[in-house]
Amino acid sequence: YPYCPYPPSLLHIEELCDSIVRSHRDTSQFRLEELQALRWKLFSREEIHAYQSKSVDEMWQHCAVRLTEAVQYVVEFAKRIPGFRGLGQNDQITLLKTGSMEVVLVRMSRCFNTENSTVFFDGKFGSTELFKSLGCGDLMVAVFDFAHSMCALRLTEQQMALFCSLVLINPDRPCLEDRGRVHRMRRDLEVCLSHMLHRDNQESLQHKLYQKVSVLQSLCSLHVEKLHWFSQRYPLTVHSVFPPLYKELFT
């Protein structure tokens, strides 16, 4: 991978685009058609009440499990990005520690129904009220707002795939050992995105997508801040029942 000439040939760009799109499709937790079909399957009042009646630590644990599942699909996605497995293990871990949650948030917009502000969770659609017992309403509102703004861009699955790869392959992450190599991967992915947006006649999206990156970073800091708040109150829950992968990534 590192010996690719720059600028990459059109053939290389197209092969890279195809590969990223395939990786995204093969590692999506839910297919778009599946989500579309379930779009109006909403939680009943009783079911919402049951979620709201959970204790703070029960609901945190429940969400940590769901989030960890989503992250595992992102890890698979990362592994299939051309060049990712050629990076040193330390750099692969660094990119996932800082980027997997961001990709989960981008992917979440596929599971979002803007018509009624609900998200697909546990097999049905629910609004922010479902997550009330987490005790972090501001984070949930911010996450839902972000999903709204992502949906407003109306990305195709191909554009979404490329954007997710750009979010993950970020040479600005601290502690990278071979920043040059990550930078070269990123540069080729940027060429791919420009090529795709040009082909789709949607070049104006590029700037809007780059603006999303800072929002993603602030959402992730808010998540870590909330986790810190929670773990000070319920250290045993985090220690003994949270998924080990969640702890490795976020604590």
Binding site: V75, E76, R85, Q89, P244, L245, L249
Partner: peptide, 14 residues
Amino acid sequence: KHKILHRLLQNSTS
């Protein structure tokens, strides 16, 4: 440290 991540990264993709 990062035991699970190491394992996930080492598993070959199916």
